[in-house]
Amino acid sequence: MKTIIKAQNLARHFGNVQAVKDVSFSVPQGRCVGLLGPNGAGKTTTMRMIMGLTAPTSGSLDVFESDASKLNRDLRAKVGLVPQEDNLDPDLSVSENLHIYGRYFGLSKEYLATRVPELLGFMRLTDKADARVVMLSGGMKRRLVIARALIADPDLVILDEPTTGLDPQARLLIWQQLTALKRQGKTLLLTTHYMDEAQRLCDDIVIVDGGKVLDEGTPKDLIARHVPPHVFELQKPVDAKIIKQNNTSEDLGDSMLFFTEKPQAITKILKTDTPYLHRPANLEDVFLTLTGRSLREK
């Protein structure tokens, strides 16, 4: 299998700030890789380096087996970017946005005449084809940004927080269509703050914090490696026996989390009327275990 992105010991500093210290990972063809990390972890800088918008201070970064900062025009045309910010043309209509963007890729009018309606259908924007972008909801704008990134039928699609701020329906549609892209064999690299999204879409996860890779693997492997499979959330006060027999627990303030291999050990101690939540461990548990629970504010 070909490697689409290969980052080795990537580092980038801005003055004294080490935004990325040592990041290595690779994205094989046809996989969806999620780059997860708290704010300030170095995700955006890494994405910008992949797009060739920021040069690494040291380390190497290859995209399509070429140096990312020196991609030629043909290779750049094979990358579609869904940026975090909505940088659509607000004064133009939905379909004009796509037509004009297609021109930057040198796409012919004939190709765009079929490609644009196709993409509008794919992103459920056909009814809005003639609406001006300023009239669109946040979810529609995101869908249009995704459609725009797909205009030249890219092999690699990079998505920077594709569903941030969207309602559940809009997220669901975007997930479905990203899954469809995966089935077509596209390679996807995405960042997100939503662990359910990452767990659902990504084949591989790379968790970064403080400019370094903390761990990587499939969502399943990461969960198996870092947290016991069962999670109980119990309201305080918690029975002392439970605290004693479980060494992996976390205090959330007015409740406690317990991670365990043996759920029965906890359920048999609990009184029948105690409200509790029992769920399987998920990627969020892994993420919080690895990166901590304290707020990241810069």
């Binding site: 025009r73 043909d74 045309a77 021109r103 930057y104 890729f105 040198g106 796409l107 012919s108 004939e110 190709y111 079929t114 490609r115 196709e118 993409l119 259908g121 794919f122 797909l150 030249a152 039928d153 479905q176 269509q177 899954t179 469809a180 089935r183 077509q184």
Partner: peptide
């Protein structure tokens, strides 16, 4: 509800989508 995969790639007859990206084209 999902658009079938084929609907986005239904026109294999469309040849050479890339005209010739060039300086003049970009400008």
């Amino acid at each position: 509800m999902t658009t079938p995969v084929s609907s986005i790639r239904k026109s294999p007859s469309i040849v050479t989508p890339l005209a010739q990206p060039s300086f003049l084209n970009s400008v």
